[in-house]
Amino acid sequence: MNAAGSTTGSQALKPKHQRLVLLAIALVVLIGAGLLAAWALRNQASYFYVPSDIASNPPEAGRAIRLGGMVQEGSLQREADGVSIRFLVGDGAATVPVRFTGIVPDLFVEGSGVVAEGSMTRDGTFSATNLLAKHDENYMPRELQDMSDMQAKQVVAEAE
């Protein structure tokens, strides 16, 4: 091929360009395969179900799953035994009632994210065996914590 290239002159590709084209094709195929694999995993690779998934496709009672969403404001109730809590987890479209007995993580508060491990019970309540607090992407100093979000944004905007 190289010998033919040298006799026909400018029409044939230089070896360097051959390698470049070959690798470009290989890279496109590789990235395509990676994206397809990631796309195929889009449901299986999720770490938890959101309440809408549970509403549209209820899992069987007793199967171990994870439920993730926001703890609804004003829904947190402590039961008479002092160590059990009930709250609603919502994703804006649906909510699921959750019951948990045990010590909650520090960041577990109303209005913030949570991932609960456990299973659905027959009465439609999610019985959690473990709670993980989900931190959101917002980082804010303590000095701004007593202000509402609107006020805090104003302070930040003025500081900039």
């Binding site: 990631a38 938890f48 931190h135 992407e137």
Partner: peptide, 17 residues
């Protein structure tokens, strides 16, 4: 792409949370 326990990116295209 996936629901994850890790938070989504805080810094995206010139915006920061």
């Amino acid at each position: 792409w996936w629901n994850s326990l890790h938070q989504p990116p805080s810094i995206t295209m010139g915006q920061s949370a």
